[in-house]
Amino acid sequence: MTQKELLDIIDECLTGNTGKFRLIVKAYQKMLYALSFRLLCDEEEAKDICQETFIKLWENLKSYNPKYNMSTWLYRICSNLCLDRMKKTQKSVSVETLSVKIKEISDENSQLKVLENEDVILLIEGLSSKLTPKQKLVFTLHYFDDLTTAEISEITGLSANKIKSNIYLARKKMIEMINKIENYERR
């Protein structure tokens, strides 16, 4: 969707046309669902966050500044909602279960596998269990959504240095988790 098309759709939406808003939902829902799913590790909660994000967008559509990317704005709303939820719930995965899954996908001969949502949940939850919500968010935006430091800074409001240190710490904690799993396997 080009910026011009988007602005036309927004104009229509501002007159109360919810049908046109569906086009925006369709264009961005996959992106938002993937982010909230990876952050919350829960399908239903990810759907809820998606809905909430779009409803917030609808309510604040008037204040949209065409200077900025719609996706950045949506990422910002969505990540704030996710951060709130992540602070409330902290899940953990047993090392044993995680060990089996990691072995499956990191096998040297294994090609890229198609994973079920449950497996993705398990792996993300397990690897990021020691990460703070902010670290998890920054790491997800950087590794999975391929966003630049400047874009992440715009979304999270963090400085470039803080973003880099968060990514470094997140990686370090994940490697620690992998070591923990390896130690468990050796026993």
């Binding site: 569906r22 369709k26 799913f37 990876r38 596998k113 198609v114 994973l115 590794y143 999975f144």
Partner: peptide
């Protein structure tokens, strides 16, 4: 591991339903 996870983008069941 991250590469595997990145390739496996979470799938939404019933996209239309959410919309």
């Amino acid at each position: 591991i991250l590469k595997q996870l990145k390739k496996n983008v979470p799938k939404i069941e019933n996209e239309e339903e959410i919309a």
